[in-house]
């Protein structure tokens, strides 16, 4: 039977991303249904530690050092493209690197891409991939027309669950057959006080124009910490320079599906809504009773975000003891 390949990825600190473990969990379920094998690959030289972590979720993981440590996603794609013997489907995170990799791999192989899966099942013909399109207005189910394909998977499509037993880790160094131009990484800059990434956060506390400035975001950061979540923002807050663009949610920012989205001082404009409306629970705090958010939040608190926020923070901290 054909093999399902999971391509894992590393966070900037060198650890395996949680999304990688979710992708692996989904691949394992597909492989079980298909009576196929699910295997993992980390196309990063020397990533033995993260590979062992990925092997908690998959029977076998290979570290492929063919592209070196500082390679960009396109170079990793060239390595993967040369090592697809027996593989029918590739699953990867729908992250910036995962998208770059999927795009290049698709072009190098001619395999189709189903992007941003929010779930997948196996039918006789291959994976049936669920996607949320038009900002959550529709849920589609799609399939590949041929025997092969590439799927990028959104955060929180499944809950990561480790396999009954630890898988094996091996290494190899595949020489790419296609030559892709090298892009040099000349510097890596860490932003001061880099925030928790919103991409795969279970809880996102998000602020908009109503937050008023960087000082206001300190309160949101405290609430996020008390909830074990990350801080997000509307474009108005990003454009004002209160918070980096990497935290922006919406049409030209990130599309996320956390378990809880707590929006503070965000009106809920359509371009914002498309980035978060598939969140399981949405709570809005806004002093305007008629903002668009009032139409689609589960709970809508009419009030001042600082007063309600301070009290919320106090009560959350009191509960945590």
């Amino acid at each position: 039977m054909p093999t399902i390949l999971v391509v894992g990825e590393l966070a900037p600190d060198g650890t395996l991303t949680r999304l990688s473990t979710e992708v692996a969990t989904l691949a394992r379920a597909l492989a079980e249904a298909a009576r196929a094998d699910a295997v993992g690959c980390l196309p990063v030289a020397g990533a033995d530690g993260p590979a062992a972590e990925l092997a908690r979720f998959l029977p076998s993981v290979v570290v492929d050092g063919g592209a070196g440590t500082d390679a960009t996603a396109t170079q990793r794609a060239a390595v993967l493209a040369a090592a697809l013997d027996g593989v029918s489907h590739v699953l990867l995170p729908a992250s910036p690197d995962g998208r770059d990799l999927a795009g290049a791999l698709s072009a190098l192989t001619g395999w189709g891409v189903l992007a941003n899966a929010t779930g997948a099942t196996w039918s006789d013909d291959g994976p049936v991939v669920e996607q949320s399109v038009f900002g959550g207005k529709l849920t589609t189910r799609s399939a590949f027309t041929g025997p092969t394909g590439i799927v990028t998977v959104r955060p929180n499509a499944v809950v990561a669950e480790s396999a009954p037993s630890q898988g094996s880790v091996t290494s190899r160094s595949t020489q790419p057959t296609a030559t892709v131009p090298v892009v040099a990484t000349v510097d890596r800059i860490e932003a001061a006080g880099a925030a928790v990434s919103i991409d795969d956060a279970r809880i996102v506390v998000s602020g908009g124009r109503g937050v008023g400035g960087p000082d206001g975001f300190a309160l949101l950061a405290d609430i996020a910490e008390a909830l074990g979540g990350a801080v997000g923002a509307s474009r108005a807050a990003v454009d004002s320079g209160w918070i980096p663009y990497a935290q922006q949610i919406g049409q030209t920012g990130k599309i996320i599906k956390p378990q809880l989205y707590l929006a503070m001082g965000i009106s809920g404009a359509i371009q914002h809504k498309v980035g978060m409306q598939t969140a399981e629970t949405i709570i809005g705090i806004n002093r305007d009773p008629d903002a668009p958010m009032a139409e689609f939040a589960d709970i809508y608190v009419v009030g001042d975000l600082f007063e309600v926020g301070q009290s919320l923070l106090g009560q959350l901290r009191a509960r945590a003891g």
Binding site: T140, A294, A297, D298, I299, Y300, V302, V308
Partner: peptide
């Protein structure tokens, strides 16, 4: 085409919004 859409459905509507208009402490 390498992919095709099998079907499209509208996701189940979200539950009605519960509006809270209370003092900050009670709302929290």
């Amino acid at each position: 085409a390498t992919t095709r859409v099998l079907d499209a459905t509208a996701p189940p509507p979200r539950a009605a919004t519960r509006v809270i208009r209370e003092t900050p402490d009670e709302a929290a």
